[in-house]
């Protein structure tokens, strides 16, 4: 007989059956992959960034492959909060997993307005504040890079909606713990670390950037060591739960993030490369845990001797 493995984790007041969540922008509105694997297999998922009004997104080209990853500048193409409540949310009620809505605004008021509109809506388990999208002209990055601005934004969203609030941090800063501290002080229940890193893909032939916006956000295995380091730094500095994200492709990666201090993880780009990735990780995870002598994953959070 084998000992039962407990994969459940609790992050900022939300219970997840397992620590594997799908990352924002990489799992649509939660239904697109339903013919490939059951969404309830996931611990949860985060929606595409939700804006107040519909947004068309950036001009193509929007993506480019890089060494061990990709660069994107989607620019938060989104349906807007009205269409989300009317069309995207109802099919998710009772979907059997945790639904986290990723919020995006170009102004502080927009974020607050979306949070307010989502108040009391059935089927949402937490909000994730995307203060770190590097792809939009006005919004995104600015909120995430100045701790005082992030603190003010987080506090106002916190007051607008009582749901558990996760703040997603940008790695494009000197000291990510300062951002995490601002989020904590403003009442965030957890932080997600990290969003994409700013980069350029250049064509020597055309002498131009490949993406229409020149800059894009780097994701995929290339950023995993950076994400792990930042999870570790936040864990060291502050008593706030962390959702690790960045370059995860395997069960081994999941365990590494948890050992570094993450309470749960998100996978994004790996799902593009392999739509079965989440399912395969969840098959592999118990096997790996058994080999590593882990019986309760939640006991391993931050357990690495770093």
């Amino acid at each position: 007989m084998t000992t039962a493995l407990d994969l459940s984790v609790r992050v900022g007041g939300v219970d997840f059956a397992n620590p594997l969540l799908a990352a924002s922008g990489c799992f649509g509105w939660g239904v697109e992959y339903s013919s490939i694997f059951p969404v309830r297999a996931l611990g949860g998922f985060v929606t595409k960034g939700l804006s107040q009004k519909p947004r068309p997104g950036n001009a193509p080209p929007r993506i480019a492959e890089t060494a061990s990853g990709m660069l994107n500048s989607i620019g938060i193409e989104s349906v807007g909060v009205d269409a989300f409540l009317a069309e995207k949310l109802p099919p998710l009620i009772g979907c059997g997993t945790r639904v986290i809505v990723n919020l995006f605004g170009e102004t502080e008021d927009e974020y607050v307005e979306i949070a307010h509109r989502l108040r009391g809506a059935t089927g949402i388990h937490a909000l994730e504040l995307n203060a770190s999208c590097p792809n939009t002209a006005k919004g995104g990055l600015e909120f995430g890079i100045v701790p005082d601005v992030l603190r003010s934004l987080t506090r106002r969203v916190r007051d607008a909606n009582p749901l558990p609030l996760y703040v997603k941090l940008t790695p494009n800063v000197t000291d990510i713990t300062a951002s995490a501290r601002a989020a904590l002080e403003a009442g965030a229940d957890a932080v997600t670390a990290i969003n994409t890193l700013r980069g350029i893909v250049l064509s020597a032939e055309s002498r131009r950037a490949v993406l229409s916006t020149r800059f894009g956000g780097l994701s995929g295995p290339a950023i995993k060591p950076i994400a792990l380091a930042m999870v570790h730094q936040i864990r060291r500095a502050l008593p706030i739960p962390i959702i690790g994200c960045g370059g995860i492709t395997s069960a081994r990666d999941v365990v590494e993030f948890i050992l570094a201090g993450a309470s749960a993880v998100q996978i994004g780009t790996a799902l593009f490369a392999n739509p079965l990735a989440a399912q395969e990780i969840l098959v592999e995870l118990p096997v790996l845990c058994a080999r590593l002598g882990i019986t309760r994953l939640a006991d391993q959070i931050g357990a690495a001797a770093l």
């Binding site: 922008g25 990489c26 799992f27 649509g28 697109e32 992959y33 490939i36 595409k48 997104g57 929007r62 993506i63 990709m70 994107n72 989607i74 193409e77 780009t269 799902l271 593009f272 739509p275």
Partner: peptide, 9 residues
């Protein structure tokens, strides 16, 4: 990137 309608790339 995804072929599934989610990455919007």
């Amino acid at each position: 990137a995804c072929g599934m309608g989610v990455c919007l790339g």
